[in-house]
Design a protein around this nucleic acid. Structure first.
Length: 855
RNA sequence: GCGGGCGUGGCGGAACUGGUAGACGCACACGACUUAAAAUCGUGAGGCCAAAAGCCGUGAGGGUUCGAGUCCCUCCGCCCGCACCA
């Protein structure tokens, strides 16, 4: 039973019907049709957790609006879907439930695919891919080897957080108070050979090109700018004449060489070679270094750690020959992997150095004079002067210069002396991509004692994950596998070992958008296909990926370009970051969190726990999360109200970039509107084809129709979906008020309404389209075009102010002469009362808008 | 600490380049229909005032302007990102 004019709109029956119709007609299958402009819409692909959540619904609804709209506008649209399918949860499920990661993952994909299909998205499912499928990761291995050949990936020793119980490397976020988040064991810092992508090779370009990403949110560009962290400065060598063997000089990096004469100490990182050399003969230094290392790498640890230094007893000579030189400290706050791992401390110009100097009784030479201060007044300060304005003092040949000039002169001098070098430094570090896990893409190399690292030959690709693995002991199952890692060296034939690390799952998501262009090709990508489709025109996803995923993808595209796979370097021409879906939180008297379904709402609005009758405390509106239990399952919403209702509510009210609150009342409102549209159409249907001349009401309705087309089109273009929804509500109200309009005007209005609603509630719109008598799919129909002449009002409402305060409004012909408008305004009763006999000094007339009478 | 964003009715939010603040929706109230309820339809609504007139009103205070939610200055509050970056 489908819907009928008498009955309600039966969303469940109707939605399945149209989904099937779209599939059968292959409406959303994309091909490289060069007769049309292309448009590639992509939402961040999901991790297959098993069920979609409201965040997905919001994300994919927005993408679908854009995809359907662009298609109607005549674009050749690519809108694919896939699965970010590798990752730790599958291994956890394997360990906890005994199900193989592959089975667990593919079952989840099947479940989630069904959920997504129930949303009625305009996806080309023929292009579906899963990163855990050999048909995907085989190509990723090929790309890895291409990158290896171009030195875009390399292996080096690096410090990691090592969990000695679980035998695994932990990310910083997984270390809590210095202990492993799962095992609780004290985490060790270990040096381990790891694979790194050379993202720093593109630091400058990744930064500079941000300026051209005009359709990216400013916020994201800024976050990436800060992450890359470019600075300009000087690398400068300080001699340590009596230093330990092989450590007769220390190179520091500074952005403030103008303050060099204010130096009162040098400090090196605990891992700095100088510190290591000192420690060899100085047990106290060694224990200080060990102490530094013990401190965790987590943010909290770093923040709370007290700034400490160890005086090595060595002195460095000032490069410009000033004074007696300065002491060299080992300090816990100096980072080995930023700059040179060594700094000079200028207490007068840096808060942290000031504290350090005070703590250890070091001199504080004042070398910058703030504007309006004197050398004497500066010397009496009790804190560092960190502003970058002022002139240099107490600095020999830099005295009197402004800071920028002093910086330039100091650098020139250091370069001329051959002890320094102008340097651009970046905060960005290479991307450590090794993971000691099973459920990831195997790194296709072999370690041979004679030949070193040997790439797996092309004929032996892909390196498949073995199926027969166990998860009963801690550590990497690939490493435990009895036979998998033992292979002959491809170069010399001797016994060798496979690499047992797998790739970070961020690698999988760094090129999937390119694979979508030719998802079944025998090569990673078909050059003609990527040249046609890339870059993605509109990418949509959460702000949480502002840095890592988006930056890695930008790096990967550059790597793909260098290895000849693509021709462009930016993956995403347009980016939109949507807000989160939130919900009220509920707690019972015992403080336990309750789900929205466990709550009953009484007539007077008070809430109780359904099972016990206990009162419920309503907490803050927060992001839907399992821990707070404030989640609503999209499946049950779609079952009850239909996908269109869920989609419509997602688009209503809240601006898409902002967080939204999911409420029952809101969903019901959306559902009522869907019903109302269906009812309105069926009431009007018999009158739409009535013969008769165009009438006044019809002209008025047509104005509303064409205004609405213009407004909704603009709103969708601008991603102002909530405003577009409001315009559609207004238009529905207008239709209601123009029942007397002639049939042709009403038919035009209804057909327009259906087309505008189409991207948002595609099933209902398709059903209405059919009811209007169309035998072709709305999904294939073109977007309506606004006629500016028809949209124009003949009468305009003009506000009349006296002294800036609104006193009256006038309804006058559009573009009436100024004198006429002014006269009409002054003749108005309310206006005359407000003027109250005072002299009119001036009358400001803004055409078609406002008259302001100045008294 | 550095950087960014945001403060508008009971709520979510509109308001083009400075020109009728509160569109639209939710919630609410009243009315119609109904035996009744639901659904639906209609009406109302920023605050003060019995109402009209009027006055007040976009976090607070000041300024520019004929006119400020919008521009400028000072302050307050909330949110987010980065954070020993030399």
């Amino acid at each position: 039973m489908s819907s009928s004019a008498e009955g309600r709109y039966n969303a469940r029956a109707v939605e399945g019907k149209w989904q099937q119709a779209w599939t059968e007609a292959q409406v959303f299958a994309a091909s490289e049709d060069r007769s049309k402009p292309k448009y590639y819409v992509l939402e961040m692909f999901p991790y297959p957790s098993g069920r979609i959540h409201m965040g997905h619904v919001r994300n994919y609804t927005m993408g679908d609006v854009v995809a359907r709209y662009k298609k109607a506008r005549g674009f050749n649209v690519l809108h694919p879907m896939g699965w970010d399918a590798f990752g730790l949860p599958a291994e956890n499920a394997a360990r906890d439930k005994g199900v193989h990661p592959a089975n667990w993952t593919y079952q989840n994909i099947a479940d989630m695919r069904a959920d997504l299909k129930s949303m009625g998205l305009s996806l080309d499912w023929e292009r579906e891919l899963a990163t855990c499928h050999p048909g995907y990761y085989a190509h990723q291995q090929k790309l890895f080897l291409d990158f290896l050949e171009k030195d875009l990936v390399y292996r080096k020793e690096s410090d990691v957080n090592w969990d000695p119980v679980d035998h695994t490397v932990l990310a910083n976020e997984q270390v809590i108070d210095g202990r492993g988040w799962r095992s609780g064991a004290v985490v060790e810092r270990r040096k381990l050979a790891q694979w790194f992508f050379k993202i720093t090779a593109f630091s400058e370009d990744l930064l500079a090109a941000l300026g051209e990403l005009e359709r990216w949110p400013e916020r994201v560009r800024l976050m990436q700018t800060n992450w890359i962290g470019r600075s300009e400065g000087l690398k400068l060598k300080w001699a340590v004449p009596k230093g330990p063997a092989g450590q007769k000089e220390i190179e520091v990096y500074t952005t403030r060489p103008d303050t060099l004469f204010g130096a009162s100490f040098l400090a090196v990182a605990a891992d700095h070679p100088f510190a290591q050399a000192v420690a060899e003969k100085d047990p106290k230094a060694a224990s200080f270094i060990a102490e530094c290392r013990r401190g965790g790498t987590s943010i909290v640890d770093i923040e709370t750690a007290e700034k400490q230094g160890y005086d090595t007893g060595f002195r460095a000579s000032h490069p410009f020959g000033a004074g007696r030189g300065v002491p060299v400290y080992i300090a816990n706050f100096v980072l080995m992997d930023y700059g040179t791992g060594a700094i000079f401390g200028c207490p007068a110009g840096d808060t942290r150095d000031f504290e350090f100097a005070t703590k250890y009784g070091l001199p504080i030479p004042w070398v910058v004079c703030a504007p309006g201060e004197s050398a004497a007044s500066m010397a009496s300060r009790t804190e560092a002067y960190t502003e970058k304005a002022g002139s240099i003092i107490n600095s020999e040949w830099l005295d009197g210069l402004e800071i920028p000039a002093a910086i330039a002169k100091a650098i020139d001098k250091a370069e001329a002396m051959g002890i320094g070098q102008r340097t651009v430094n970046y905060r960005l570090r290479d991307w450590g991509a090794s993971r000691q896990r099973y459920w990831g893409c195997p790194i296709p190399v072999i370690h041979c004692d004679s030949c070193g690292v040997v790439p797996v030959p092309a004929k032996d690709l892909p390196v498949l994950l073995p199926d027969d693995v166990t998860f009963d002991k801690p550590g990497n199952p690939l490493d435990h596998h009895p036979t998998w890692k033992h292979v002959a060296c491809p170069a010399c034939g001797k016994q060798a070992r496979r690499e047992t690390d797998t790739l970070d799952t961020f690698v999988d998501s760094s090129w999937y958008f390119a694979r979508f262009c030719s998802p079944r090709d025998g090569e990673p990508m078909d050059r003609a296909a990527v040249d046609y489709w890339l870059p993605v025109d509109q990418y949509i996803g959460g702000i949480e990926h502002a840095i890592l995923h988006l930056l890695y993808s930008r790096f990967y595209m550059r790597g793909l370009k260098e290895t000849g796979h693509v021709g462009v370097k930016e993956p995403f021409a347009g980016l939109f970051t949507q807000g989160m879906v939130c919900h009220e939180t509920y707690q019972n008297p015992a403080g336990a969190w309750l789900t929205p379904e466990e709550i009953s709402r009484a007539e007077d609005g008070t809430l109780t726990e359904t099972a016990t009758g206990a009162p419920v405390t309503v907490g803050r509106v927060e992001k839907m999360s399992k821990s707070k239990k404030n989640v609503v399952d999209p499946g049950s919403i779609i079952d009850t109200y239909g996908a269109d209702t869920a989609r419509w509510f997602m688009l209503s009210d809240s601006p898409p970039e902002r967080d939204m609150e999911w409420t029952t009342a809101g969903v019901e409102g959306a559902w009522r509107f869907a019903q109302r549209l269906w009812r309105m159409l069926n009431e009007a249907l018999p009158t739409l084809d009535a013969a008769g001349p165009a009438n006044e009401a019809g002209a008025s309705l047509r104005r509303a129709t064409h205004k609405t087309i213009a407004a909704v089109t603009e709103d969708i273009e601008q991603f102002h979906f909530n405003k577009g929804v409001a315009r559609i509500y207004e238009f529905a109200n207008a239709l209601n008020e123009h029942k007397a309009a002639d049939g042709a005007a009403k038919r035009e209005a209804f057909e327009t309404l259906v087309k505008l609603v189409g991207p948002m509630m595609p099933h209902l719109a398709e059903e209405m389209w059919a009811a209007l008598g169309h035998e072709t799919l709305l999904a294939l129909a073109p977007w309506p075009v606004a006629d500016a002449d028809l949209a124009r009002d003949d009468l305009v409402t003009i506000a009349v102010q006296v002294g800036g305060k609104l006193r009256a409004t006038l309804s006058l012909a559009r573009d009436a002469a100024k004198e006429l408008v002014e006269a009409a305004a002054l003749a108005d009763d309310n206006v005359r009362r407000a003027i109250d006999g005072r002299a009119v000094r001036k009358v400001v007339v803004v055409p078609n808008r406002v008259v302001n009478v100045v008294v």
